[in-house]
Design a protein around this nucleic acid. Structure first.
Lengths: 363, 363
DNA sequence: CTGAAAGCGCTAACAA
DNA sequence: TTGTTAGCGCTTTCAG
């Protein structure tokens, strides 16, 4: 007992520096049970007593101790939220949504950004387990198998995005990449593009793979078989996008359009193009993915596939909550669909020479 | 006791579904005190026993319950971190730094984004109090007085940025706006600018005011007295910047340069200029403040005043930690200086007509 | 409807 | 050095 405010031994003449439920009970002249009931708004408490209790609480400015509460009730009212990269604007928007909803429902969240590092991820899962989270939303778009085991063993409700094991207590948010990316390809095709490149995300990221797959499928739907040199690996960061575009720039006939696995990559691409003195969409059309807030103020504003952070946050929280609060019917929400859709702005246009005769590619 | 794993009464033939310190003690054939000591790495435990304890822990995959631990020890190892706007990239970078440092030192953080809303702020302080945080970093660059009282009353160590009350247990991070903004003005003046506008942040934000003051002071250092029409109110968002620039655009002689109170505003300004068909820095020079990651990939890359998120995170954590772990010497760290400095990129140049004859604006 | 009492899982005197 | 024991602040049976 390091707690400095805790008296060593009970003594009748002790000054009660700490103000707990007992202090309130004494002041309100009721039992601690009544105080507890009042605070928890149990309907059966006599209004008169409740009134006295609230007054005492007000007067002493009492704040209940969540730790003690959780300890005895077995409910921490805490959810974990793991994201891969808090510096990618997509995630703060997601976190904000999740936090808003959680708080609204009386939950707190423990956020952790793992920077794609399995070590950090492992450590952070451990910490969450120690804090007795009631569920974890793993919004990293991919996870290492062993870490998963660590969590699943505990039977902590989990919600994944894109990819997760099929087990009770685990929900998966299925993002319909095909729809949005299909729209993107159709948009480009309608504009006259046939030579479309793709900047992927990190190879081990499941979501990045799904986006690529959706792209390939959409292309072949239009009878286009992209050759592999048009698919270049990025890493979902600004730099990664810039580097990917650099590679693309060295290609013999420059692709007339490029779709990126996320907006950060697309912005990197835009920047590299700016450096190269190429105009967008004049020389080349660009499409991103995510629709982060900044996409709208790029020069030019970025055409992109929107994936609603709010929908994701809401679905993730909902899944966790239903697992926690009604475990028996939790199977009903095992999979939730998240839709995506194209937002057309100004980074896409007809390819050079599609109407007027083709001319030499600049650069 | 809702806890479903908790047996109602002790019974000798109970299956111990829950694995706590007692279970470990039994398996390792030691007392619970020894288990506790082992976990807490108390040096005096017999290595042999410790070994047995660790094995049992390993075998049962035991994770200690932080809530119980905090409850008895009086140390939650939790810090609160309040930011104003998680969707402004400045903050995620700050959060990341703070989290890294905190975790490294065995602390957890509770993050909350208040969106400048005093109601949310109040609610979030309350929640943090309930969770028994040991300190709160209030990185909102401004706070309402009554909320402050709420916290100060509890004697929770606090660290503010820019502005905070002078009380024991409270540290303040003083940002040296004058240095960076002075550099910015000097840079512009050296380039030949005299007609420099300023886009402020929200009026009630202390930091925004300080930035404006630093600007005014720097201007007068160069003998320039900016007329008030050149100071336009923004709100530290993309939209706010765009709207501010719109106002500026209607000014009779367009200012030749504009300094913004933060990068988000500057990006909004850049975008509005792009819309207006004006070139940067050809027609007008722009300087931001913060140096968020995206500033470097703007078109053109934004000249801005850098304020290190990492320095702030480190200083904030350090202040909190020293208050918690050695309260007696906490007065030694009441004020910490944070420096700022100009990062020159490509959004600044000589004003039109200063050296070479003016040419038509490109688009 | 209210109060007394038994813990939640753990740490820290204190004694052995 | 190790074990025993008394709580941390709260919820929740269970009697009354």
């Amino acid at each position: 007992m390091t707690n400095p405010s805790a008296p060593k031994k009970k003594a009748s003449s002790e000054i009660p520096e700490r103000t707990d439920i007992r202090t309130i009970a004494r002041l309100a002249n009721v039992s601690i049970a009544t105080v507890s009931r009042t605070i928890n708004r149990v309907a059966t408490v006599n209004p008169k007593m409740a009134q006295r209790v609230w007054e005492a609480i007000e007067k002493l400015d009492f704040v209940p101790n969540t730790q003690a509460r959780s300890l005895v009730s077995g409910r921490s009212k805490l959810f974990g939220l793991i994201v891969s990269e808090i510096t990618n604007p997509f995630f703060p928007e997601l976190i904000q949504g999740f936090e808003d909803i959680a708080v609204e429902h009386g939950y707190e969240i423990l956020v952790s950004s793992t920077s794609y590092d399995p070590k950090r991820m492992s450590h952070c899962i451990r910490r969450m387990l120690e804090r007795k989270v009631e569920g974890v939303a793993i919004m990293t778009f991919g996870i290492e198998e062993p870490l998963l085991v660590q969590l699943a063993k505990r039977k902590v409700p989990l919600v994944f995005i894109d990819f997760g094991p099929e087990r009770p207590g685990i929900s998966v948010l299925r993002v319909d990449y095909q729809h949005g990316i299909g729209q993107a390809v159709r948009h480009l095709a309608a504009l006259g593009h046939r030579d479309i490149a793709f900047v992927t995300g990190p190879k081990r990221l499941h979501s990045a793979q799904s986006r690529l797959t959706a792209f390939m499928k959409s292309m072949s739907d239009f009878g286009i078989v992209p050759d592999s040199s048009r698919v270049v690996v990025g890493n979902h960061t600004l730099d990664g996008g810039a580097m990917a575009m650099e590679k693309l720039l060295s290609l013999k006939p420059l692709p007339t359009a490029v779709i990126c696995s996320n907006d950060m990559s697309a912005i990197g691409v835009l920047h590299k193009l700016y450096r190269a003195g190429l105009s967008v969409p004049g020389d080349i059309s660009i499409i991103g993915f995510d629709d982060i807030a900044i996409a709208d103020v790029m020069m030019p504003p970025l055409t992109t596939v929107r994936m609603s952070r709010y929908d994701i946050a809401k679905a993730a929280f909902g899944a966790l909550r239903s697992h926690v609060e009604s475990p028996q019917e939790s199977h009903c929400c095992r999979e939730i669909n998240i839709s995506t859709s194209l937002v057309i702005r100004e980074s896409t246009g007809a390819p050079r020479g599609s109407i007027s005769p083709p001319r030499k590619g600049s650069v």
